[in-house]
Design a protein around this nucleic acid. Structure first.
Lengths: 344, 344
DNA sequence: TGTTAGCACTCTCGCCTCACGACTGCCAAT
DNA sequence: ATTGGCAGTCGTGAGGCGAGAGTGCTAACA
C-alpha cells in the first residue's frame, strides 16, 4: 500500500514532532510547524485516513495522534531523512576515538559511550559470537610455580586469558613445546569447533594430553559465557525519557538490561544485516516496550561485533542511523585494528 | 547520652517496623506488633522524648515517626540484633561459591550477586586500590609479529594484561631476557611506586630502555583507571524500593552508580575498618540520599578488595552486616585463593 | 472532487472542596 | 509513672466542575 506524497509528509511531520516532544500531535501543530500551506481541516482528513491505514493512533477522542510501530517501520525504510552528523556530534566521536585505544574492550566501551552521549539513550556494544573467532595462536605461560596463563590469540584479538593450575614440577621448557603443539592442533579452527575435538587432530602425544584437555575446557568456557562481552553505557539516561517516568516500566527495562539472557538474543537477532531495528511491543514476550537498533562492526573487513542503542520506541531513528553509520566507518579504519590482522 | 532500656526497645521497634514497611510508625503499631505490655499513651510519651533527642522525625503532626540518620547509626552500633543467616540465605551463598571459581573477577562478581540477591539491593564489589599491589613477576610475550602481551603478576593475582606494539624484527629470545630484567627491576615494589621510577633501579641497559618505558606506561595505566575494577549487580532492584519510586531520585541514584568517579570515593572512604557504613544525606554534595555498607575482603590474610551493598538509608542493617560477615569468612577460605600466594 | 471555515461535541486535566480517618498531644484520673 | 479519653491537626482520596484542547462533521466554495 503506497501513500500519497502529502500523506507521507504529514506522517513524517507527526513522527518528527512526536519524537521531539512525546506529546500527541494535533492538526494545528502540523500546520504551525511543518505544513503551513494546508488548512488544519485538510490535515485532519489526512490524519483520519492515516489512522485507518494503521499508521496512527489516538489516545482518546480529544487528543492528537501518535505514531504506531508500523509508522516507525515505514519511517525508517522510506521516510526519514539521511543526515550528516553535526559538528558537535563529530566532536564527541573524536573525543572518544582520537585518544589512544589499545584494547578491543576499549573499542566497545568507547563505541557504547559515544552512542549514548550523542543519542541520549543507552549505548550497547558486544563482541560477535566468540565461537566464530578463528584461533591463531595459543600460548601457555607459567607465572607461578603452580599456575599458568593461557593466552589465546584469534582473528578478533586476544581473548581474556584464563589461569590454570599446573603441577609444580613442570619445567618452563615444557610449556614452550606444549604451546607449539597446542597451536598446531587448534590453529586455524573456529572456537566452536572444540565441541567436536576429535576432528581437530589425529594423534595427541601423551605428554600433552592433560594440557590439551585443559585448553579444551578453557575454550568451552568462552563459548558458554558470551554474556560477559556486553558493554552498556548510559543506562541512567533512560530515566530521562518520559516513557520510563513510570517506575514500573523503568524497572522492566532495567531488568532486561541487567539480565544478559534477555539482552543477548535481543541484540543479536536477525544476524547479518548491516543494520537491525527491533521494535518490541510490551507484553508479547515479557520484554519491555522498547526499540533496539544495532549495526555490525567490522575493522578492515573482519567482523568484530555489534553496537547500537536501546531506548523507547519513540526515538530519533534518523539521527541514530547516521551515528551508527559514522561510527562503523570510524572503527573500520581505526589504527588499533591492525592488531587484529591475521599475521600470527 | 544513654537511653533507658525501654526507649531502646521502642526505638528498635520503630526502626524494625519502618525498615519493613517504609511507613511512618504510630504508637498503636508499636503496641500491636512489638510491645503489647505498654499503653499507646506511654509509647507516645517515649516517642516524643526520642524525637527531642534527635532519633526520630515526624513528617507531619498527624503522622507516625520515622527514624533519623542518627537513629540508624545507634541501631548499627548497639541496638541491632546479630543474626545467623537463614537456611535459604545460606543456600544462595553456596549456589554462587560452591561452583568452581577460577578468576578473581569471578569472586567479585559472585560476591556482588550474592549480596544483591540476599538483600534485594544493589551489590557492589571492587578490588583494593591496585596501586598497593606488589609486583611479583612481569612477563612479556610476543603474540604476533608486531604485538606483545604484558603479563603482570601481583600478590592479588594477575592483572588484566595489556597489549603493546613492538618492532617486528625483535626475536623472541629478546623478550625472555627482557622479562627477566624487567621483573628484577619492578619485582617486590608496589605498583604506585612507578610514579618515581628513578628509585626502582640504578642502571637500565640501553637495549631494554624502550621496553622499560613502555612497561612504566602500562603500570601507570592501571593506577589511572582503577574505575574498571568495580562490579555492580542488581541495580534494578533499587527500583523496587519505595524511596526511588520517584523517577528523579532514581535517576540521581543510577547516575551515581554509573559514574565511577562518584562511586569510587563513596565505596573506599574510611579505608581500613572491617566494616564501613556510609549514610549520605541528600544534597550535601550532589550525591543522592543513600547508604553504602562495605566490608573488606581478604583471602588468607591478603587484602583483595571490598564488597558491600548500596541502597536507601532505610535498610536492614542487621541482615546486611550478617551477610557481609558470612561472605567475608567464606572468601577468606576459598580454595581459589591459593593462587594469590606470593610464591612466585 | 478536493479543500476549507465553522461549529458542536468529547474527553482529559487541573483545581477546589469536603469529609474521613489516622495520630498526636495534653489533661485528668489512677 | 502510667494510662484512658478526647480534642485538635493534617494528609488523603473522592467527587464535582470548568477550561481548554482537539476532533469529526457539515456545508460552502473552487
Amino acid at each position: 500500500m503506497s501513500l500519497s506524497e502529502r500523506k507521507e509528509k504529514i506522517l513524517r511531520a507527526v513522527i518528527d514532532s512526536y519524537v521531539d516532544s512525546c506529546q500527541p500531535v494535533s492538526s494545528a501543530d502540523i500546520q504551525a510547524n511543518y505544513l503551513s500551506a494546508l488548512s488544519t481541516a485538510t490535515i485532519r482528513n489526512e490524519l483520519a485516513a492515516l489512522e485507518d491505514m494503521g499508521y496512527l493512533d489516538q489516545p482518546h477522542t480529544s487528543a492528537g495522534r501518535i505514531p504506531t510501530a508500523s509508522a516507525y517501520k515505514l519511517y525508517v525504510e522510506r521516510l526519514m531523512p539521511r543526515r550528516e552528523l553535526s559538528s558537535s556530534e563529530l566532536e564527541i566521536v573524536s573525543k572518544y576515538f582520537d585518544e589512544k585505544i589499545s584494547e578491543i574492550d576499549d573499542v566497545l566501551r568507547s563505541t557504547a559511550k559515544v552512542i549514548s552521549e550523542i543519542t541520549n539513550l543507552t549505548g550497547v556494544a558486544c563482541f560477535t559470537n566468540v565461537g566464530e573467532a578463528i584461533i591463531g595462536n595459543i600460548r601457555i605461560v607459567k607465572i607461578t610455580s603452580t599456575l599458568a596463563l593461557v593466552i589465546i590469540v584469534t582473528d578478533i584479538g586476544v581473548l581474556k586469558d584464563a589461569t590454570v593450575t599446573v603441577p609444580s614440577d613442570v619445567p618452563e621448557e615444557y610449556f614452550a613445546k606444549a604451546s607449539a603443539f597446542i597451536t598446531a592442533s587448534f590453529g586455524g579452527h573456529r572456537i566452536e569447533e572444540v565441541r567436536n575435538p576429535e576432528r581437530l587432530i589425529c594423534e595427541i602425544k601423551d605428554e600433552f594430553r592433560d594440557l590439551f584437555d585443559t585448553i579444551l575446557e578453557v575454550l568451552r568456557g568462552y563459548l558458554d559465557d558470551s554474556s560477559e562481552n556486553i558493554v552498556l553505557e548510559g543506562s541512567s539516561k533512560l530515566l530521562k525519557q518520559p516513557e520510563y517516568s513510570n517506575v514500573g516500566k523503568a524497572r522492566e527495562m532495567f531488568e532486561m538490561l541487567e539480565s544478559k539472557e534477555k539482552l543477548v538474543p535481543a541484540i543479536s537477532s536477525k544476524g547479518d544485516l548491516g543494520l537491525t531495528i527491533n521494535i518490541s511491543n510490551d507484553g508479547e514476550d515479557g520484554s519491555p516496550e522498547c526499540a533496539i537498533v544495532t549495526a555490525n562492526l567490522t575493522t578492515h573487513g573482519v567482523n568484530i561485533g555489534k553496537a547500537g542503542v536501546i531506548g523507547p520506541i519513540r526515538m530519533d531513528y534518523s539521527k541514530i542511523v547516521s551515528v551508527l553509520d559514522y561510527i562503523s566507518k570510524t572503527i573500520e579504519d581505526l589504527p588499533v585494528a591492525k592488531k587484529f590482522d591475521k599475521d600470527n
